[in-house]
């Protein structure tokens, strides 16, 4: 800080402005894309798929697991698409 600094124009400390804007924006974008979700989700998805396949033959992408925020709590959402005509799995347990 020099004593003549007041003579210079230009916004002061724009870096903190940038940081605040980015912090908010990036959090919103991560929430929207489901990022920041717990990292056990892929494994949960795979194991659910295995369990379901013991009973019904479903596609590999039939199970969808995601989290989202509802008010101030997190919701774990499972969606399982059954085939048109559910055929029971041949192997039992």
């Amino acid at each position: 800080m020099g004593i003549f600094d007041f003579l210079r124009k230009g916004p002061q400390n724009t870096a903190s402005l940038a940081k605040n804007r980015l912090t908010i924006l990036i959090q919103e974008e991560r929430d929207r894309s489901g990022r920041g979700a717990p990292d056990y989700l892929p494994m949960l998805r795979r194991e659910l798929l295995e369990v379901i396949r013991k009973f019904v033959n479903v596609d590999a992408n039939a199970v969808d697991v995601k989290t989202h925020k509802d008010g101030d709590h997190d919701v774990l959402e499972l969606s399982i698409a059954l085939p048109d005509k559910a055929s029971p799995a041949t192997a039992s347990g």
Binding site: P11, Q12, N13, T14, A15, S16, A18, K19, L22, T23, I26
Partner: peptide, 17 residues
């Protein structure tokens, strides 16, 4: 420029990302 407050610092970028 970081010292004068018009560029984000290493810590800022690390914290954001």
């Amino acid at each position: 420029r970081v010292a004068s407050g018009d560029m984000m610092s290493i810590a800022d970028v690390e914290e954001i990302l």
